[in-house]
């Protein structure tokens, strides 16, 4: 008898499951019409994904609006390129004049969400002396991470239990979340990147 009841319950639940896509979308449509003027077509704030910071706080990208964002995708157990990417980000930050510093955030997105828990990201931030609010470390689902990489044109692949191949791209977004600059490669001259940040930041 218990099983029969359970089955009846499932039959009732199934249609609800199948319509969830529709419901979610109409929500998005409603929301979009309200905020259309605020979020432009090319803005990353159109992405609905929710991320977790190194302080274990849930965050949507659009909560970062108003700041210039300098973004890079890394993973904390990486020993080859990532330390150099971190160094590049630090070097860029150091060259931004004090008058502009308040309007710029530096965002690291993990491509290894399974390993990079908020606790691990926090430890990584402290280790690299990046534990104040201008440095943001984010972790999302595998799927949202893949999607965000697609937006940044960052390619990555897991090549062993511990390591990933990934492209090294630093991206700059303006206050509205629109991509304004990308630089590919490691330890490359970051003059242009810094100039773009200074030009964009208030």
């Amino acid at each position: 008898m218990k099983y029969i009841i359970r089955h009846i319950l499932f039959i009732l639940v199934i249609p609800a499951l199948f319509t969830s896509c529709k419901d979610k979308n109409s929500e998005v449509i409603a929301e979009a019409s309200v905020t259309d003027t605020a979020i432009s077509e090319l803005s990353i704030y159109n992405l609905p994904s929710v991320w977790t910071t190194q302080n274990n706080e849930a965050i949507e990208l659009k909560e970062l609006n108003g700041d210039v964002l300098v973004m890079v995708m890394i993973y904390t157990s990486c020993t080859a390129a990532c330390p150099r990417l971190i160094a590049d980000m630090r070097a860029i930050e150091a060259q931004v004049p004090d008058s502009k510093k308040g309007n710029v955030k530096y965002v690291f997105i993990s491509i290894d969400p399974a390993t990079d828990t908020p606790q691990r990201l926090k430890a990584f931030a402290i280790e690299n002396d990046m534990d104040d609010e201008k440095w943001i470390f984010l972790r999302g689902t595998e799927e949202d991470t893949r999607e965000f990489a697609a937006v940044l044109a960052v390619n990555y692949k897991k090549i062993s239990p511990m390591d990933f191949s990934h492209s090294n791209i630093i991206s700059v977004f303006n206050q509205k979340g629109e991509l304004v600059h990308q630089k590919e490669g490691l330890g490359v001259n970051n003059k242009e990147t810094v100039e773009k940040i200074v030009e964009t930041a208030r």
């Binding site: 080859a80 390619n155 692949k157 191949s165």
Partner: peptide
């Protein structure tokens, strides 16, 4: 996961094993 393929589409960048562009 089309973006897990790590070869550059641009012929000028298609240097085999370009470690500057790709980690690992």
């Amino acid at each position: 996961d089309f973006n897990s393929v790590l070869i550059s589409g641009e012929s000028r960048k298609d240097v085999d094993k370009d470690s500057n562009l790709f980690c690992g």
